[in-house]
């Protein structure tokens, strides 16, 4: 693992929400709220959270598609928001994206070969070599090069996702942002795509920002994992430490929501009851811990105070006054917040 390829510092992306006639009221939606992350070359960072937690906004901002309210995104040490158009064009070569919906991310009127060739053409790849290059790419992702002239609707979801991946790797980018790349696929096909992404990473030394709502998928691909709740990172650690001893009650809730393919274990399981739906409009008004309203171990203290994002062990950070111990949320006796957080 090399040096930091991407650094996100105190990134905030707020959207204003206008309501009432003639902008009477204005409220902010804090889609990304003071997020700090770093990503080393060659590793995969998993970002986990429910829909609406701001993970896609974070991805879009890193791609330079959204303007941040404050904070910086450094790619190879360079602030991507200080670049002019020409420099931005060059940057886009190095950051590519794989989308969630494999069908709507491919133009239905273009031949799949042309779809994969599009980024090559945009960056002046010699016309003569394109067909050969595209065939190589198709081969690499497991699509027969003979299918160059077919249209996207002739392929299944998994195959379309492979085509999307071929397009993303065409320019040999340094960073690929994968926004829920497997959540629209069948389980059997999910495994194929995850394996493909891992193989390509090894071969081309790619770096992934892997966004998902499913921790079991992230466990199989990410070196480090960040959990996001309402725009804030609430837990961040290396894969092993993260899954061995998750500290944040929200992480426990996410883990407990995953159905186990094992009826006996499933019946014996002590599931954390999930309170409420995901709060969509938590505006600026909320005080205290963002997770307070759904937290299974919330205390009065949490309602009034915002937990700092701190190191609980050396490489494991979480934002909670009562970090979960012994991997059990149920029946936990909360300790005093001022002594448990150092």
């Amino acid at each position: 693992m090399g040096k930091d390829l991407l650094q996100v510092k105190d990134l905030k992306v707020y959207f204003s929400k206008k309501s009432g006639f003639l902008k009477k009221k204005q409220d902010e939606i804090r889609a990304v709220d003071k997020v700090t992350l770093s990503l080393k070359a060659g590793e995969t960072l998993g970002i986990v959270g429910e829909s609406g937690c701001g993970k896609s906004t974070l991805a879009r901002t890193i791609m330079g598609l959204e303007k941040p309210t404050s904070g910086t995104v450094l790619f190879e040490g360079q602030d991507i928001f200080s670049l002019n158009r020409k420099q931005m064009h060059q940057l886009r070569r190095d950051i590519q994206m794989v989308f969630q919906d494999p069908f709507s991310s491919l133009n239905p009127r273009m031949k799949v070969g042309d779809i994969i060739a599009a980024p090559l053409k945009a960056y002046g790849y010699p016309n003569k070599g394109i067909r050969k290059k595209v065939s190589e790419l198709m081969d690499l992702v497991g699509i027969k090069p003979e299918y160059y002239d077919r249209l996207p609707h002739e392929f299944s979801g998994g195959q379309c996702q492979r085509i999307g991946i071929a397009r993303a790797i065409a320019l040999k980018p340094k960073l690929i942002v994968c926004d829920e790349p497997v959540s629209a696929l069948d389980v059997s096909i999910q495994a194929q795509i995850i394996n493909l992404l891992k193989d390509l990473q090894k071969e081309f030394h790619l770096t992934y920002l892997f966004i998902s709502h499913d921790l079991s998928v992230v466990k199989n691909i990410a070196n480090r994992v960040a959990v996001i709740y309402l725009g804030k990172v609430v837990e961040f650690a290396e894969n092993e430490s993260f899954f061995n001893q998750p500290f944040h009650p929200y992480t426990h809730m996410l883990l407990s929501a995953i159905p186990l393919p094992d009826p006996r274990a499933e019946k014996a399981r002590n599931r954390i009851a999930i309170k409420n739906d995901f709060p969509v409009n938590a505006g600026s008004a909320s005080r205290g811990c963002v997770f307070y309203s759904r937290c299974p171990i919330a205390q009065d203290y949490c309602r009034e105070h915002v937990p700092e994002f701190v190191n609980i062990t050396a490489d494991h950070r979480a934002a909670c006054f009562y970090p979960v111990k012994n991997n059990s949320v149920v029946g936990e006796a909360p300790s005093d917040p001022r002594t448990s957080v150092k």
Binding site: V187, S188, Q190, A191, N195, N220, I221, N239
Partner: peptide, 20 residues
């Protein structure tokens, strides 16, 4: 093929090759 929490990062998922 189900991505299980029992697997670790270095394990390879077992996929069903091909398409239905």
């Amino acid at each position: 093929a189900i991505p299980s929490l029992k697997l670790t990062l270095n394990d390879r998922l077992v996929s069903i090759p091909g398409q239905p």
